[in-house]
Every structure is written in structure tokens, then in C-alpha cells.
């Protein structure tokens, strides 16, 4: 295809992405290296309905003058990336020299917000991605095995975890897993501990978030695999049968290789989505036990904080994290692309 034709075809899509994604990414990059100006603080008397007291306020005029002088803000370079609320390089250095042993070192490092969040995010990604894909694959195999007229309803019910809005879905689930909710009571009687509360301990909370993650993302893998199963070449399967291949051998040597490109696609999407896990943490009020990078961004952008540069830096770190995690898949795509493109 000629370059010019290519350009015209891709233009609408590229324009939309440039305007609404690329430009924000540029501004986020700028924001992460330019912090707000020094604030000029003045002590004044504030009187609210309950009385008067001395307090400080930002001197708007003086700060506006600073802003006029340097409209981009205060250039801080990578200072925000390396401060305690992000990569915490100098804190790690201190811990390194003061720690009494490896266990103490890791304990102290994990106490730093970024690394604590990274631990949860990576655990979550590492468990939810394969489990959800595996579950989705099994459901697809099972749905494929039932009579045709039952498949429509089966597909719909299997899709439910994905299509009920997480906003209320999680609210209801949160209530169900409460110590006095139906699932909470079920878990208690299963374990045999009437005082067990899923929401009270960190390991339980992590398990719950992971189970929810698998439950809510398996349907996506299911749809993709179910469709994939429809295209398994029947003649290959039949000739494999004639050659005496067992059911397991057919699955292993015909079906799974056929679905491999799909698996790559799912990995790509799911690793990315799981690394950005955010909604379940907020919906389950799990912020005390589990944090993720996206959760920090959300907290930084909250009205009480308004740490725009910090949120920008965490966003850039998130993108970098995704790129690192996906690099094997990207290299794989590069190789297979080389094959098809030639």
C-alpha cells in the first residue's frame, strides 16, 4: 500500500488518538517534571461560623506573580520520580545501609508506598492473568460441548460478571462477603471459624480481590476462546483421530496450537489491564490492605490531595511498567510480524 493511501486510511483513527491520548501523554510528561510554584504563605485571621483563629493562606497575588514569571511551573527534573512517594531512591539507600539483614531490608522497602503497591500489583497480575485465561478456556470447552440451543443462554450467563456495571456489582459483592453476608457466612462454615472476616486481614483481602479479578475477567477470555474453538480445522482433527490420537493428544497438539495467537492477544490485553487494577480496590474499600499504582493516581487526584505532578509521575511509571511486562509479547509480535510482512 502506498504511504499516502495508508495515511488517508489511518488518519481519522490516528487523529483521534493523537488529540485525546498522545497530547495528554505529552502534558503528563511535562507535568511530571514541572511541579507547582513555591507557594507564598501568609499568616492571617480566619473567622468561620465557629469562631476566629490564626491560620495561613496562600498569598494569591504573590503566587500569581511567580506563575507569570514561569508559566510552566518549577522545573524539578526527576525529583518527583525519585521522591519517597514514588521510587524513593534515597530512602532505599538509607535502608540499605541501616538494615540489619535481608528480611529487615525487604520489610522496610515494602513499607514504602510504591514498592508495597508494586508487590500487590505484580502478585495480582501474575495470578489473575493465567487463572482467568485458563478458566475462560475451560468454560469455552464446556459451552462448546453442550447442545446448540442451550448455548445462547449459557453465553449470556457466562458474560454476566463482565457486563453488570462494576459500580453496583462490587457494592453487592462487598455486602455478600461481609461477615454476616451470604458468602461470608458460607466461607465461615466452610472453614469452620464463625469469627472469620474476609475484610479484616490482608491475606484474605488479597485473595478476595484476586478471586474477584478472575471471576470478572474470565468471561472476556471465554468469548475469545469460544469463537476460536469454532475455527479449529475439522479435517486436521479427523485425520488426527484416524491416526489414533487420544482426546488429550488432539487437545494438546491440534486445538491448543491453533488457539495460540489468541492466547498472545489475551495475554497482551489482560496483563495490561491487571497491572492497572483499580476499580476492585476502591469498590471493596480495600485501600488499607492492597494498593496499586492506579489507586495512588486516584488518591493523588482526589480533592484533598490534588498532587497533579505526583499523579503524572505515577502514570508515566505505570506506562513504563506495562511496557516492561509486555516486552516479551511485543518481541514475539515483532518476530511474527516480520514473517507476515515480508
Amino acid at each position: 500500500m502506498k504511504h499516502k493511501t495508508f495515511l488517508w486510511f489511518i488518519l481519522p483513527s490516528a487523529l483521534a488518538m493523537l488529540l485525546f491520548i498522545a497530547m495528554p501523554i505529552v502534558s503528563v510528561l511535562l507535568q511530571s517534571v514541572f511541579a507547582p510554584h513555591e507557594q507564598v504563605i501568609r499568616e492571617v485571621e480566619n473567622c468561620d461560623v465557629f469562631g476566629c483563629k490564626k491560620s495561613t493562606i496562600v498569598d494569591v497575588e504573590a503566587t500569581a506573580a511567580l506563575r507569570e514569571a514561569a508559566p510552566m511551573g518549577r522545573f524539578v527534573g526527576t525529583a518527583i520520580y525519585t521522591d519517597r512517594n514514588h521510587l524513593a531512591l534515597s530512602e532505599i539507600g538509607t535502608i540499605w545501609s541501616s538494615a540489619t539483614g535481608a528480611a529487615d531490608f525487604f520489610k522496610q522497602v515494602l513499607n514504602l508506598p510504591f514498592y508495597g503497591a508494586l508487590t500487590f500489583t505484580l502478585t495480582y497480575t501474575a495470578l489473575v492473568t493465567p487463572l482467568a485465561i485458563l478458566l475462560g478456556f475451560s468454560i469455552a470447552l464446556a459451552v462448546n460441548a453442550i447442545p446448540r440451543f442451550l448455548r445462547g443462554p449459557a453465553i449470556f450467563f457466562s458474560l454476566l460478571p463482565m457486563i453488570v456495571t462494576p459500580l453496583v456489582g462490587a457494592l453487592i459483592l462487598f455486602w455478600m462477603v461481609d461477615a454476616r453476608g451470604i458468602l461470608g457466612v458460607a466461607i465461615q462454615s466452610l472453614v469452620g471459624d464463625p469469627d472469620l472476616s474476609v475484610k479484616a486481614s490482608t491475606p484474605m483481602m488479597w485473595s478476595m480481590l484476586i478471586v474477584y479479578g478472575v471471576w470478572s475477567t474470565a468471561p472476556f477470555a471465554f468469548v475469545v476462546y469460544y469463537a476460536g474453538l469454532q475455527t479449529v480445522p475439522q479435517d486436521t482433527l479427523e485425520s488426527a483421530m484416524i491416526d489414533g490420537a487420544t482426546r488429550w493428544q488432539r487437545l494438546r497438539f491440534v486445538i491448543i496450537p491453533h488457539l495460540l495467537p489468541l492466547t498472545t492477544f489475551l495475554l497482551l490485553i489482560k496483563i495490561m489491564d491487571n497491572f492497572r487494577v483499580f476499580e476492585p480496590i476502591v469498590s471493596f474499600n480495600a485501600g488499607a490492605h492492597a494498593q496499586s499504582l492506579s489507586y495512588f493516581i486516584y488518591a493523588d487526584l482526589s480533592a484533598t490531595n490534588r498532587l497533579l505532578s505526583s499523579a503524572a509521575a505515577t502514570s508515566v511509571l505505570t506506562i513504563l511498567g506495562v511496557v516492561v511486562l509486555l516486552s516479551p509479547v511485543i518481541v514475539h509480535t515483532w518476530k511474527s510480524f516480520g514473517r507476515t510482512a515480508s
Binding site: 511541579a35 507547582p36 510554584h37 513555591e38 507557594q39 504563605i41 518549577r74 524539578v76 518527583i80 521522591d83 519517597r84 512517594n85 530512602e91 513499607n111 508506598p113 490531595n305 490534588r306 498532587l307 505532578s309 505526583s310
Partner: peptide, 20 residues
């Protein structure tokens, strides 16, 4: 004491960024 030190450290990072 550790919790309070953590609070101060987290606050200082945020207040530095905010220009305070």
C-alpha cells in the same frame, strides 16, 4: 513512632511537590 514518622515523610514529599 514508625507510623508517625511515615506520616511525616509522606507529607513532606507531598508538601515539597506542592511548593509548600
Amino acid at each position: 513512632a514508625t507510623a508517625l514518622a511515615d506520616i511525616e515523610a509522606a507529607y513532606i514529599a507531598a508538601a515539597k511537590e506542592g511548593g509548600f
